[in-house]
Every structure is written in C-alpha cells, then in structure tokens.
C-alpha cells in the first residue's frame, strides 16, 4: 500500500521529464486562454495570447514546475517557428496584386514607418538610460514574433524581454490605431489595416481581420513587409 502511494507521488516528476508534458501544458493554456477570452467578451486590451501566457505562468509557478525543464520540452513547439516564418511567404504572394494596386504609397511609407517604429523606441529608451542589451531587445518591437526572435538573437538582446515588448506593442498599437482613426480621422480600411500590421504585427493583424477582409489583407502585407525590411536593415544599422 505504501509502495503504491510512493509510486503515485513519483508520477508528476516522471511525467514532467518528457517533452509531451510541456506540450500538453502549453496546449491546455492556449485553449483555456481562448475560452476565457470569449467568456469575458473579447476585450481589445486583453488579447487571448496574454491570457494564455498568464495562465501558463500561473500554473508553472503554483505547481512549482521546473521552468528550465518546461522550456526544454517547449522547444518541440517553438522550433516550428522556423517553418511558420517561411509560411508567411504564401499570404505575401497571394496579396501581390494589392501591392501592385497601391505600390507607391506602400513603397514610400514602409521603409520610413518601419524605421521610425524602431527608432522612436530605441531613442526614448536610450535617453532614459537603458543598456545596449535592452535597446537590442526593444528595436524589433513591431516585427512579427518568428522574425523578431531571429533579429534579437543577431543583435544580442534578451528574447524574453523582446517577447514582452512585442506583446505590449501589439496590444497598444491596436488601441492607438482605433483611437487615432477616429481622431484624425482616417476612414480608408486599407490604410488602417496597413498601420495595424506594420506597428502591431500578428495582434494588429488579428484586429484588422475584424474590421474587414481588405483591412486584414493589408495588415498581413504590412506585417510581412515590416518583418522583411527590419530583418534586413536592423542588424546592419544597429552595429554602426
């Protein structure tokens, strides 16, 4: 009987040694976050990714799951970001006719706005005394996660800090586009979508698809182009 209890108590430790435990935990938090998001009325300021991450962190902390071991197992998930980045090339190709129809404003705005998105953040943080590692983590804040991870590693920043910045940027960019669209005002859905994707990456793009399909297409375009442009330019400029 005592042996049975001992074996029972050893189960959590044995299970958490396998990567499938980290996968199960992440998937559970993903679905729980999405469920909770729908339950609280899909608020703009609290996207499902934040809810899921908070839930997952809470479970890890509460049940004292070995964090290093969790990340080791979760590698089975994050390693898919590589092919997922390649996959972004497909919508980019599918929207090539949108680029052709509006190519002058896009080609002029993109390099300027994508550069400004990084420069504003880096200059503000630098003026307030942030270290080079923090600056390197903030620079790709408007770039979609799989590309931003690559950029941060190249620049020598901290990936967790960059991910936090990315998340906050996505949420506040979505809020600011909504507010400024009314205030300026800007009514063209193509412009709103492009601004959402350019500044707010995947979170902004998700919001744009709620406005309209056209806005969503332009957001994917803005997100993809900002990713490519920043990935090509930032590592070169940052080292100067």
């Amino acid at each position: 009987m005592i042996e049975l209890v001992e074996r029972f108590l050893a189960v959590p430790d044995a299970l958490s040694a396998s990567p499938i435990f980290a996968i199960g935990l992440t998937l559970s938090a993903f679905f729980a976050g999405n469920w909770l998001f729908a339950r609280i009325g899909k608020p703009l300021w609290m996207p499902p990714v934040v809810l899921s991450a908070v839930l997952l962190s809470a479970v890890i902390a509460l049940f004292s799951v070995d964090y290093a071991r969790y990340q080791e197992g979760a590698l089975w998930i994050t390693v898919l970001l590589g092919p997922a980045t390649v996959a972004l090339g497909i919508p980019l190709y599918q929207q090539i006719h949108h680029i052709r129809a509006m190519w002058v404003p896009i080609v002029v705005t993109l390099p300027l706005a994508a550069t400004l998105a990084a420069v504003y953040a880096v200059v503000i943080a630098w003026a307030m005394g942030a270290t080079p590692e923090v600056l390197a983590s903030l620079a790709p804040k408007s770039v979609t996660a799989p590309i931003a991870i690559g950029i941060t590693e190249q620049l020598g920043g901290s990936v967790p800090l960059m991910m936090g910045g990315l998340l906050i940027t996505g949420v506040v960019a979505t809020l600011f586009v909504d507010v400024l669209a009314k205030w300026l005002p800007v009514e063209d859905e193509r412009i709103l979508g492009f601004a959402l994707g350019l500044n707010g990456h995947a979170i902004g793009t998700a919001r744009a698809f709620e406005i309209s399909h056209t806005a969503g297409a332009f957001a994917s375009l803005g997100m993809g182009l900002t990713g490519v442009f920043t990935a090509l330019i930032l590592p070169v400029v940052f080292h100067l």
Partner: peptide, 9 residues
C-alpha cells in the same frame, strides 16, 4: 502562430 510564441511570452 500564437501557440508557437507562447513559451517565449
């Protein structure tokens, strides 16, 4: 995509 970036977040 959101699921893939979760461990990083």
């Amino acid at each position: 995509l959101v699921l893939l970036i979760m461990p990083g977040v």
